[in-house]
Design a protein around this nucleic acid. Structure first.
Lengths: 167, 167
DNA sequence: TGGTTTGTTCGGATTGAGCCGAACAAACAG
DNA sequence: CTGTTTGTTCGGCTCAATCCGAACAAACCA
């Protein structure tokens, strides 16, 4: 429970975020930068992030841009309208996961579904191919609906919906 | 609705699978090989897949191994116990997605949760850090439960569970 | 048996992602 | 105005993934 232990523990969590970042298709640096911001008491500027993470200024600049774009961190135009930019982590992790769901999964499912539907019209009727495409479509229609609904619920709601469901 | 249209439509769907493969962390070749097998009338051997996909024999060999390992395709030891191996696609797409869920997401969530819990014990009590870690843990506990339950349901069940839920 | 087909394994070429440092632009301080 | 701090952009380096071809091993065929 010392200060040191605390720092080590924090470091472990940040490493874990580096790991998770890869799963979400982000770089390890993105995971670390998010992690540092997640635990920071105040929003940090780019030089401060350079100091904390050891990454080059250019890397921090690029990564913060991507993270801002996808909503994992927020740009805080500093007080006084100065040039200095500060970044703050979005700490509602569920929001982030919802975003990933919407921007990533949902988009992927929808474009796939469009392709499948178009293909289903063009494929020869009464063939095995038609049946295969139809099966694909049906699963993806379920999937689209699931992803749509899941992205609207909070984590607690989603959990309850699944826990209380009686088959 | 000509034979040609049908072939084009099929090609489009396969291209879409190439795309999806990347999202699941697989190579484009894996997506194409799965796609070809998905539409094939019978299980295909490696030389046949080479013919259909244009990939080198070695590539097909390696990719089929990975796809078999993660359950997207199945090795059919050919009739007569000969050397010739044939592959068949797992066409229950939902099974595949469940597998991804279990092997990928669930595993990721669980290891992260372990790290977070350990960190929560080591972090200094009554600090901002502790609160942050606790929030993280609570979200991930919901997430673990959600993923666990979701992986047990069929697509239709999952859809119904969400559709019928009243907040 | 010798030749052919099938499948795996290896080294190497190519490509893209991630990160860095340097150059630049913009704001600020004195 | 001059020097400093901050942030972005650019080219280049490194490394890992992907894929290929060649060599090899194993089964089959005539």
């Amino acid at each position: 429970m010392s200060d040191d232990d605390s720092a080590v523990a924090r470091e472990r969590v940040i490493e874990s975020m580096e790991q998770s970042a890869e799963v979400y298709g982000l770089s390890r640096s993105a995971g670390r930068i998010y992690g540092v911001l997640y635990f920071a008491s105040d929003p940090l500027s780019i030089p401060e992030l350079v100091e904390e993470t050891g990454y080059a200024k250019s890397t921090v600049s690029n990564v913060t841009r991507t993270l801002s774009r996808i909503g994992l961190i927020h740009r805080r135009s500093s007080e006084g309208g100065g040039r200095r930019v500060r970044f703050e982590a979005e700490r509602e992790v569920w929001f982030i996961l919802q975003d990933v769901f919407q921007q990533y999964i949902q988009r992927e499912v929808q474009t796939t579904l469009r392709t499948i539907r178009r293909a289903e019209e063009q494929v020869l009727a009464e063939t095995r191919e038609q049946e295969r495409v139809r099966n694909l479509r049906e699963t993806y229609e379920d999937l689209e609906e699931i992803v749509q609904l899941a992205s609207e619920y909070s984590a607690a709601e989603l959990r309850e919906a699944l826990e209380t469901y009686e088959r």
